[in-house]
């Protein structure tokens, strides 16, 4: 009897998850943003760890590490962690490259497209030490005045370790 209840619970759980997963997977939307929206995000003072990743569809190491951010987004959904992917693809690539890639790769976290290619006007506003190379990731908790940057490809375990130090 007890075994049956257990099995039933597991089944219900699987059913729930199977309904919920596709929902979260296909609700992908890309928001086209300007640099002010990005700097606002960077200056957010709430007690939240922000993981902000600059990437583009044409950048192979960026695309390769996307699943790591998705994993992070899902693992920390109930914590004070926000993962924000910021694509610096051209606006003209939104429908032709960006959206198809996100769908193909099943990218479930929120994605912004920063519609500004006058890089010299904004790179220093994001991070002085950033030379413009991508992938580039910033992890910060402004309320605790903690901030680290990662130049180049990273992975879930490295990100998780850094987040752990800021939560």
């Amino acid at each position: 009897m007890q075994l049956k209840t257990k099995c039933f619970c597991h089944l219900m759980w699987l059913l729930l998850v199977s309904y919920w997963l596709p929902l979260s997977c296909y609700s992908q939307q890309v928001t086209v943003v300007n640099i002010e929206q990005v700097t606002d995000l960077m200056q957010n003072q709430s007690d939240t760890v922000y993981v902000v990743n600059f990437w583009a569809t044409w950048c192979a190491p960026c695309v390769k590490e996307l699943p790591e951010f998705v994993q992070l987004h899902e693992a920390y959904q109930n914590r004070k962690v926000r993962v924000q992917l910021i694509s610096i693809d051209f606006r003209s690539a939104l429908e032709s490259s960006l959206k198809p890639l996100l769908q193909r790769k099943n990218i479930t976290c929120p994605v912004w497209l920063l519609n500004n290619t006058d890089y010299d006007s904004w790179i220093n506003r994001i991070e002085e030490s950033w030379q413009g190379e991508i992938p580039f990731t910033l992890i910060f908790n402004n309320q605790r005045r903690k901030r680290v940057v990662i130049s180049g490809q990273t992975d879930f375990h490295h990100l998780e370790k850094l987040i752990g130090e800021m939560l």
């Binding site: 290619t117 010299d120 790179i123 413009g132 190379e133 490809q153």
Partner: peptide, 9 residues
């Protein structure tokens, strides 16, 4: 001095 986007080395 200016900054621009590019691929990591």
């Amino acid at each position: 001095t200016t900054k621009a986007i590019g691929c990591t080395i």
